[in-house]
Amino acid sequence: MWRNTRSGWGLVSITLHWASAVAVVGLFLLGWWMTGLSYYDSWYNLAPWWHRSIGMLLLFATLLRVLWRLFQPTPVAHGSRMERVAAHLGHIALYVLMLTVMVSGYLISTAKGRGIGVFDWFEVPALISHLPDQASIAGEIHWYSAVALVLLAAGHTLAALKHHFLDRHDTFIRMLNPARTRRR
């Protein structure tokens, strides 16, 4: 139920996957919208506060997710050898891009040595600060890697739909239903 097996994803992986999916799309849209706000908009300070807070939580969730993925069995991949290799590389790229987006975002806000408040719960300390032009360079990386992440995630979605409707195997279903772990 909670853990992965060779036939399906457990509830931990499924929850992390879908929470990340919602957070990535939500943070992308929120980030895009908030960077265009005028100084006088009532969301000018509040939107980045949400963006930073959720982003930091997603970073921790992603680190947990990567650990869980490394120490848990992975359901057997379907499809041709080429498809399986491409899928594997695509998944690695998604993890790498997610971490790149979130770490670069963290480096924007911590560029002058201040930590990042996560809601009003706690503060993530600044670990790397005062690099030359840190905030601006991290900002560029944050934007371009976020665009790349969202495009790759769109490809990931299309691939999932193809597996479901054209290939008719359970790649998509097993990311929805933890009961698949029990089969076979």
């Binding site: 980045p48 806000s109 911590t110 560029a111 002058k112 201040r114 905030a135 601006s136």
Partner: peptide, 24 residues
């Protein structure tokens, strides 16, 4: 110009962006 510092990384980034000083 990019060495501007007001003790707030996001504000400094904004000040040196093309909205104001355009340090690039």
């Amino acid at each position: 110009v990019s060495s501007l510092n007001t003790n707030n990384a996001e504000r400094d980034k904004h000040f040196i962006s093309s909205d104001f000083l355009d340090a690039d």
